[in-house]
Amino acid sequence: MAASTEKQNPAFYALLAALVVMSVGPIALMLATSFKMNVDIYDESVSAFFFTPTISNYETVLCNVLWYEPAHVDYCDPTFGRALGNSLFVAIVSTALTLVIGCMAAYALVRFKFMGRGTVSMTTLMMRMVPPAVLLVPVFGIWTFQYGLDQSHMGIILVYTAMNLPFVIWILQSFIVQVPIQLEEAARMDGANPIQVFFMVVLPIIKPGLAAAAIFTFRIAWNEFLLANALLGRSTRTVPVTIVNSITEYDIDWGVIMATGMLLAVPPIIFTFAASRQIITGMTAGAVKG
């Protein structure tokens, strides 16, 4: 193989640049618009990227969590600030719950040779295929009339945990398989019980797998709209639901909605830059080494 100094055609770099612009462009446009006044958005003589920036859109969105009262906000709508808190709570709790439960199950499946990996990957695939839309009617019916969990955060957390578990179990399995059994045996010789072995020996080794699983779970819980919309009430709503509610009206306040969208997009963007390797591991695990 040639070294990294391989000479490339200038056209090749032009292609790279074009690809970067294409994937980042729409996001950059959203970011730019979120700092734009509505007058400027509708003024065709103002450029898409060069204008006098303002943080007023963010002030409108976050008015009830700010420590000061923005002068331009006549009526402070607390919907978004509340939804942001709801989203954080739901995403963090369901991620933590999925990881703990998924870890235990994956460990048992690998170490105690319960089912073959074939069975588990088959089940994972089957579950991956279930669209959230298919769960809409039953989840609404059961959660409302049988579990009494409608309108509550616990209800939606249970749904997200169940939706993410198959994938989490499956990906953690492939990491646990690589933990040398001798390490565990040594710990057991020293008198550790299975639970101690799991927490002190296995967990620290599979950290990268946990990171990948956590990001995927958080992303689904943070971004999901359909089931949250069906289950949650006015005060328990998450951000995606409030966004959709505010665009069904004919007239869209683009500056504010772009600021809202940007706030929803920021955590996944941070994860992407902080842990792209783990994300790619999670993404390719199924197809490339399945």
Partner: peptide, 10 residues
């Protein structure tokens, strides 16, 4: 990866 990570709603 960015486009895949952002909420479909957004």
């Amino acid at each position: 990866i960015l486009p895949m990570m952002i909420a479909p709603i957004v």
